[in-house]
Computed example of a mutant assay.
Amino acid sequence: MLWMMQLLVILLGAISQGVGCWREDRQAQLGQFVDVNGRQLHLVVRGHADPMQPTIVLDHSLGGVEGYFLIDQLSRLSRTCISDRAGYGWSQRSAKRRTSAQIVQELDTALTEAGLEPPYLLIGDSFGSYNMRLYAHTFPDKVCGLILTDGLHESGMLNMSPLLRGLQAFFISGFLVAILGSTIGAIRLLRWLGLFYWLKPELRQFPQWAFDAATRSFCRPQHWWTMTQELFWMDQSGQELADANDLGDLPIVDIPAASFFIPAWWTRLIPLGRANALRDQMHEKLMQLSTNCKQIAAPESGHFVWIDQPAVMLEAVKWVLEQQNQRD
C-alpha cells in the first residue's frame, strides 16, 4: 500500500510538472528566437542601439540565468543582450558537447542572426568568464571590453586537489538528483513554497518578472541536465582556453568576491578555505590577461556577485565604457 501511495504522489507530481511547463510555454517568451545549428536559442535585447556605444553581452554562470536580474539596469548604460545558453531558459537543448568552444560559436551565430552588430562589451559570470574570454580571443575585432565576475582560470581548475575534485563530483551528483526532482515537479513545488527566497533573501530586491523568468528554468529537467554536462566538460573547456591568455590591451575588469560562499554553519562541511585559496590564485592569473586590467572587489559578496552586489558590476561596465570613449 505504501509503495502505491508513493507512486501516486510521483505520478501526480509529474502531471503537475507537465501542466506547469505547458502553461508557461503558452506564455509569450520575453525575447526572440534565433536558429543556431537547427536549435532555437532565446535572446533578450533591451535598450536603444547607439552607434557610439557598444552592445553589452552577458553570459550566465553555470546553471544560472541571472542576466534577467541585471538587464534593466545594464540597458540604461547601453543596449544589452542576454542569451539563454542551449538547454537553459527558453532555449532548446543541443546534442553537441557543452564546452566553451561550442558555446562561443553558438553565441556568435546567435548575435549575427539577431542583427546585433559589434563592438561588444562582454560580461562573463563564473563559468561564463570562460566563454566570454574565449570569445574575446576568437573574435578580437568584435570586442571592446571584458568583465569577469568572480571568474575562473584554467590554471587552477585543471589542477584542483583531490578534495576539491570530490566537491565537484558532489555537485554533479546533486544535479543528477535535481533532474529527478524537476521531472516529478518537486522543484516547482519548492519554488512555489518560497525556497529560492529562503536560500537567497537578496532575490527580493529584483522585480517579480525577472525572478519568474530566471527561476522557471530550474523547474525543468533539461536545465539540470545541461548543468551536469557543462560541469562534466569543464576540463575540456579549460583546455580550449590555453591560448586565450594574451588579450593585448583590451580593457578588462576582474571582480573578485569576498568568498566563494558566505561563511555559515553549513560551509564547515565543505573545504571552503581551499576553494577560496584556489579562487585567489585564479584572480591573480586573470589580472595578467591584458595590459589594461582593473580589479574592482566585491567585499560583501559571495560567488553570486550579480545578486549580492550588482552595483559593482555596473561600476565595472561604466569603467569599460569610459575606456571605449577615450579610445574613440
Rank of each mutant, 00 (worst) to 15 (best):
W3F: 10
M4Y: 11
I10T: 09
L11R: 09
G13A: 09
A14N: 08
Q17N: 10
C21W: 08
D25E: 11
R26D: 02
Q27V: 07
A28T: 10
Q29S: 10
Q29H: 07
L30S: 04
G31N: 00
Q32R: 08
D35S: 15
V36A: 02
N37R: 15
N37P: 05
G38T: 04
R46F: 07
G47E: 00
H48L: 15
Q53D: 06
L58I: 00
L58T: 00
G63Y: 03
V65C: 10
V65S: 10
G67F: 01
G67H: 00
F69L: 15
F69A: 02
I71T: 01
L77C: 04
T80F: 01
S83I: 15
G87Y: 01
Y88G: 01
G89V: 01
A95C: 07
A95W: 06
A101K: 10
A101T: 13
Q102H: 15
I103W: 06
V104N: 00
V104M: 03
L107I: 11
T112H: 13
L116M: 14
P118K: 06
Y120A: 05
I123Y: 00
S126I: 03
M132A: 06
R133K: 07
A136K: 04
T138H: 04
P140L: 08
D141E: 14
K142T: 12
L146F: 12
I147R: 00
D150E: 14
L152P: 05
L158G: 04
N159Q: 13
N159V: 07
N159A: 09
M160F: 14
M160H: 11
S161D: 08
L163D: 13
G166M: 11
G166F: 12
S173P: 05
V177Q: 11
G181Q: 15
S182D: 01
T183M: 06
I184R: 05
I184E: 02
A186K: 08
A186I: 09
I187N: 04
R191H: 09
G194S: 03
W198Y: 13
L203T: 07
R204A: 15
R204P: 06
Q208W: 11
Q208R: 13
W209T: 12
A210K: 09
F211Q: 07
A214Y: 07
A214V: 11
T215L: 04
F218D: 02
H223A: 02
W225L: 10
T226H: 03
M227L: 09
Q229R: 15
W233M: 09
M234S: 13
D235F: 11
G238M: 05
G238N: 05
E240K: 03
A242V: 13
A244I: 02
I255N: 01
A258P: 03
S259F: 09
S259Q: 07
F260C: 09
W265S: 10
W265M: 11
R268P: 05
L269G: 13
L272I: 09
R274F: 14
M282K: 03
M282I: 07
E284I: 13
Q288C: 12
L289F: 05
S290R: 01
S290I: 03
T291P: 00
A297F: 07
E300L: 14
G302V: 05
F304Q: 02
V305N: 00
Q324I: 15
N325H: 14
